[in-house]
């Protein structure tokens, strides 16, 4: 069952297109990672999904309802943690949590207490005196103590210490185990890799890649680490080989899935001493997409002019 869906989402600020056709789809019980460089449109997409911004074109639906028109109805079942948590300086954290929970409707006192304890938050302090991480904890406690079906989290861990990050990850896992869906935007790729079932990569307002991590890896290929008796001077010219690097006296490079057979044949001529293969990490995937598409896109724009 699809919980959240956008189709051809376009958002223009004046004439600047912050979103330029965004299509994502989150299924029930799924943790969906949303990654992309600064200013690529993650927060904008999320704000459109929450009916805070009005889409210029395209469709955004949550629980099958229109994100703009049925915002209030949708929000009864959504918990949101914004990227920049700005709170009221003269209210305490405890007051803000209660207010947030109340505004969503429904209360869960014991869950609130438990989360405050787990996140190690002092709810009696004024928000003015909270550090960035503590402000984030306020938003997280409010989000996870509400009984939502969909959690929309915009860089929720950017200010948390490693211990708190672990608590956060536990909270996400628990929510997932209860069959809830989560849309998680983040710059911490290890976190996305650990938590997410699916990932979408956005760049300049466009989704450039999406799917399960497995699918993405498949698209990208395998990382090989090879040590040979004789040097391989022509390696770079072999079809399907990219990103050659020296590592521990061996060569590490990325091989396109279709060319794997050819490449291994080529390498074996030089007498293999050691050979390791590993799937690319999300970081490697990410870098490749950014750098790769970065240059082609720039060339494309230049070509049009």
């Amino acid at each position: 069952m699809t919980v959240l869906k956008t189709e051809g989402l376009v958002k223009k600020f004046g004439s600047f297109p912050a979103l330029n056709g965004v299509d994502i789809e989150v299924e029930k019980g799924e943790v969906y990672g949303f990654i992309g460089p600064n200013g690529s449109g993650k927060s904008t997409t999320i704000r459109v999904l929450l009916g805070i911004l009005k889409a210029t074109e395209g469709q955004a639906t949550i629980f099958g309802m229109d994100a703009w028109k049925d915002a209030v109805k949708i929000h009864k079942r959504v918990a949101y943690v914004p990227g920049d948590v700005n709170l009221w300086p003269n209210l305490t954290g405890g007051e803000v949590i209660d207010l947030f929970v109340k505004l969503r409707g429904g209360t869960n006192k014991s869950r609130r207490e438990e989360l405050i304890r787990r996140f190690d938050l002092d709810p009696g302090k004024k928000c003015r005196t909270y550090s960035k991480g503590n402000r984030q904890k306020v938003a997280l406690v409010a989000a996870f103590s509400s009984d939502a079906d969909l959690y929309i989290l915009d860089e929720p861990t950017s200010g948390l210490d490693p211990l708190m990050e672990r608590v956060f990850q536990e909270c996400v896992m628990e929510a997932k185990a209860e069959g809830k869906s989560i849309l998680l935007s983040s710059h911490i790729l290890s976190e996305v890799e650990k938590l997410c079932d699916k990932v979408a990569i956005i760049r300049q307002g466009k989704i450039i890649e999406k799917g399960t991590l497995k699918e993405l890896r498949h698209l990208t290929g395998t990382i090989l680490l090879v040590e040979t008796k004789e040097p391989m001077p022509e390696l770079a010219t072999v079809k399907g080989v990219q990103g050659i690097e020296e590592k521990e006296g061996a060569l590490s490079f990325q091989v396109d899935q279709q060319e794997l057979d050819n490449v291994v044949r080529y390498v074996s001529q030089f007498g293999i001493v050691r050979m390791e293969s590993s799937p690319p990490t999300l970081e490697e995937l990410f870098m490749r997409h950014y750098e790769g598409t970065g240059t082609t896109e720039r060339a494309g724009v230049g070509g049009e002019v």
């Binding site: 805070i52 929000h75 959504v78 914004p82 920049d84 947030f100 969503r104 938003a139």
Partner: peptide, 14 residues
């Protein structure tokens, strides 16, 4: 302007 309405309209408040 101070970015605090997001918390309100992001919840079940019309």
């Amino acid at each position: 302007k101070n970015g605090r309405l997001e918390h309100i309209v992001g919840r079940a408040v019309s």
